[in-house]
């Protein structure tokens, strides 16, 4: 009997009678939790205090982008130096992040230090390749090609130094067809007809509508005396860019 009474007793230290008495009144405690909770909910919901959070490497790249948009040379250099300092430090701490290599490469590209830009983008590609989302390798390859193009222009596409630069820019785990185009350009320049055609054809397999490659191939065939093929590629190039004067002049010469 005593046991039964014990189990029927509601949980809590107070007796039911005391509880009923308490229910008819309220204290500050009644409003404490709902009050604090409502304050917190609305405080967070309305963004009353919202500190800025940026990953340190993006702080560096933001400064570089700002430099890129600034016309004042002194200010531009200042932003670029500040951004570069941050990115170099981040790259030293986190050499395993492909994205940080990419951002550092971007800094060097803006600084027109193309050797370093190519090196950094190559590191970005080799570390970043294989991801399913946020694939850094494509953007990095694009920047690598841009930097390499500048390097090749600087050496006038002369054979030995150009091939060395291209070899240095080659990524072992990611196929970069633009390197074939550059090779084609180098070989065409040096008069290595077969090698030039092979490289340009290889590039055109993956980029059949690239004007520069089509035009270059037409010129290469033309210089080699194969006017039929030169005409074929010149017409293909004209379809991509009908307003190129040099090309149009070449096509006219066939008639």
């Amino acid at each position: 009997m005593a046991k039964k009474t014990q189990t029927q007793k509601p949980f809590g230290e107070e007796t039911p009678k005391a509880n009923i008495a308490k229910a008819s009144s309220y204290t500050w405690k009644s409003f404490l939790l709902p009050g604090i909770s409502l304050f917190c909910l609305l405080f967070l919901f309305f963004d009353i205090y919202s500190p800025k959070v940026t990953d340190p490497w993006y702080a560096g790249s933001t400064l570089c982008s700002k430099a890129n948009r600034t016309e004042d040379t002194a200010l531009r250099n200042q932003y670029l130096n500040e951004g570069g300092t941050i990115l170099l430090e981040q790259n030293r701490i986190h050499p395993y992040h492909a994205r940080v290599w990419f951002l550092l490469g971007y800094y060097y590209l803006l600084k027109q230090d193309y050797d370093s830009a190519v090196y950094c983008q190559k590191q970005a590609v080799e570390r970043g390749v294989g991801g399913i989302v946020n694939e850094v390798e494509y953007q990095a390859t694009e920047m690598l090609n841009s930097a390499l193009g500048n390097q090749l222009n600087a050496v006038g596409f002369s054979k030995e130094p150009s091939l060395m630069l291209i070899a240095k820019a080659t990524t072992y785990n990611f196929y970069n067809p633009v390197l074939e185009k550059y090779k084609g350009q180098v070989y065409a320049n040096s008069g290595d007809f077969d090698l030039a055609v092979a490289s340009l054809q290889k590039f055109l397999n993956s980029n059949p509508k690239d004007f520069t490659a089509l035009y270059l191939l037409a010129v290469t065939y033309y210089n080699h005396g194969d006017k039929e093929l030169a005409k074929e590629f010149a017409i293909k190039a004209r379809k991509v860019n009908p307003n190129n004067e040099k090309l149009n002049a070449m096509i006219l010469s066939f008639k």
Partner: peptide, 9 residues
């Protein structure tokens, strides 16, 4: 499992 992202470690 293969990471979806490889631009960062």
């Amino acid at each position: 499992s293969i990471a979806l992202e490889k631009d960062f470690l």
